[in-house]
Design a protein around this nucleic acid. Structure first.
Lengths: 352, 352
DNA sequence: ATTTAGCACTCTTCGTCATCGAGTGCCAAA
DNA sequence: TTTGGCACTCGATGACGAAGAGTGCTAAAT
């Protein structure tokens, strides 16, 4: 976008002011808060042109200007100067993330908590996408007659399990036999290539009657498939109610309604991350969606800032923030990035 | 409470009207909607007395009356006539509860979902309290060097597990040895009697060096203790925003803030259920807390209706609704009770 | 060709004020 | 004990005007 320097300055000032005051900003206020060397009349002219370009708009004739989605986009893409987290804030976040951690899920939990509290917005995290990983172990453990625990271990050390029902009179040995056979035949197989068919054929030459076997195999199949599902952590929904952006009850209701719609947000984030899969990713790359760019009802006044964390070399998931589009982007971005970095470090420490 | 018949009628009429209209009800409105055989002036006198008894109150001098907490209490305890769920509603709820269930947690999930949607309020469920149950199996499963899965099986067939870190060079056999020793010594021991000490002494005469052993034992201990923690399902928070009772943003914020405070609601429900443990319970007993009876900030205008579901003979948990105290109690009670009944049936089917 | 001062105009916000109406309490009569 | 009547209270509603912030436009200045 070919904006001359002064226009850039003006747009930047408008966004900055609007974000911090939540009031439409007029030419006079602009002069007062920033040291422009020109008069308010000149700024008015500039603002009129920015409006013609679709970067700012006015709520009504006699109000100041507010950034449009396009204006925020321009700001984010080329105007904003990166923020540096204070030492104290870094320490606080670190502390919260590393507090009483036993598993990766604890880390994700802590990270979303910290992120939501620090930003004051909603934060979300998604468990790693497992479709690319493969099976390394499959154990079945007899719990009691008729009941067994299927433990699925995937590459990168991810463990998932599930209690399943099995025919009552199967013995411990038979169960072990089955799971050993399955494991031997399916070792190293990508999760998405495991089907009921491959599973069944892996235990063909067993002396256990086929109908029984089928029941066990089906349950194991469900357990394996279930390992693939995405877990989502959403945190801090109530914080949105404190924002002036959602002081209208109707907006707040729509927003929380959509957020609480199970899988809706996760599905969307998954979508946009997948669509960006090919892109080159620098070390601290993040993804931003602003306002109408988000195709979810009730989130028209929100922005997404998401980034990717890694588990080992092959697995990755997302973590990020959903806030009002009127947010301090540089600050939130640096927070998200710091959390991502810390999260990656801690995951590495935990699994290595 | 020694109320004469007419006072009872009046109080009942006031609660009914207020619940359905959300408007303070005056003497005239009362005459119009109900066939009282007396004049509005007489009702005014009655209402003045009910107010003196603390059962109703007026928001301001010239408004109608609304029930006080005490009034709701009286209504719930002796005035309300039970509601019967329509066949359709029963079917709908049943269908939702039994939809794609693999485990008890699925049932709880479905049940809270159904309850929240049907009532339009928040619903909650808590996993069963396990403090009384005992250990029946403890298995450790090698995942990879340095990493094992501890599987804890409790009476009533509850399975909990957790990935733990162990010293790198421990072999599969050694792990098996340890877990066998623990299991043998601790079989049948109530969960709350298992301490680090009892755990350690159960593997005293092993040839594995003590410091190593201690590490493993500690991890196992954490895994066992973690099995005891309560899971909570809260569902439908956003629905509260649609209620006129929370059209004030401040109230809504306080409410959702408290609800999202992890463990706060669960702790409270646990508390009140424990305090009622001695009481005789009829088959469809429920517990009601109204307004100020609830000692949680932001829930002054809410009521709890909770009940107990059972898993087997020994385990029980709670499920219920958090709604505005201005609710149709008889309807919600019957919904909660139906869900409880259905839930119990399905749990029985699932685990037997 | 830009920039600026000035001015008329627009539109929201806020406080005031009067009115309306639902509801009450109380008194005196039935 | 019940009822009709009446004065009174108080919130809700809407009209009205003043204040204030901001705009666009024009004409003069640089």
């Amino acid at each position: 976008m070919g904006l001359d320097d002064r226009k850039k300055q003006v747009l930047q000032a408008i966004v900055d002011d609007y974000v911090s005051t939540y009031e439409p900003v007029g030419s006079k206020a602009l002069i007062e808060r920033h040291n422009f060397t020109v008069s308010s009349a000149t700024l008015r002219n500039e603002m009129a042109e920015l409006e013609k370009l679709g970067l700012i708009e006015k709520p009504h004739t006699s109000a100041g200007r507010i950034p449009s989605d396009k204006g925020y986009r321009e700001y984010v893409d080329s105007l904003m100067h990166p923020d540096i987290l204070s030492r104290e804030e870094q320490d606080e976040i670190s502390e919260r993330i590393t507090d009483s951690v036993h598993e990766v899920t604890d880390l994700l939990h802590n990270a979303t908590n910290a992120l939501s509290e620090k930003t004051g917005f909603v934060s979300l995290a998604m468990s790693p996408r497992l479709h690319g990983s493969f099976l390394t172990q499959l154990k079945m453990l007899m719990i009691e007659p008729g009941k067994a625990l299927v433990v699925v271990v995937l590459s990168a050390g991810v463990v998932k399990d599930k209690v399943v029902r099995i025919p009552n009179f199967l013995t411990n040995e038979q169960i072990m036999q089955i799971s050993n056979a399955v494991e031997k035949n399916l070792y190293g197989k990508p999760l998405d290539e495991i089907t009921l068919i491959t599973l069944a054929s892996s235990v063909k030459e067993s002396e256990i009657p086929e109908t029984l076997m089928n029941q066990v195999i089906y349950e194991a199949y469900v357990a394996i498939k279930q390992a693939d599902k995405l877990d989502v952590y959403l945190e801090g929904e109530h914080r949105m109610l404190s924002l002036p952006d959602f002081s209208e009850l109707g907006r707040a209701r729509d927003l929380l309604g959509t957020l609480s719609h199970d899988g809706m947000v996760a599905g969307y984030v998954n979508e946009i991350e997948k669509s960006a899969e090919g892109q080159i990713r620098s070390d601290d790359s993040y993804m931003i969606r602003i306002g109408q760019e988000i195709a979810l009802e009730g989130l028209e006044d929100c922005s997404f800032i998401t980034t990717t964390y890694n588990i080992g070399d092959t697995l990755s998931g997302n973590i990020g923030v959903i806030g009002p589009k009127r947010m301090d982007y540089s600050k939130v971005i640096s927070q998200v990035n710091f959390v991502r970095k810390k999260l990656n470090d801690e995951i590495r420490r935990l699994i290595e």
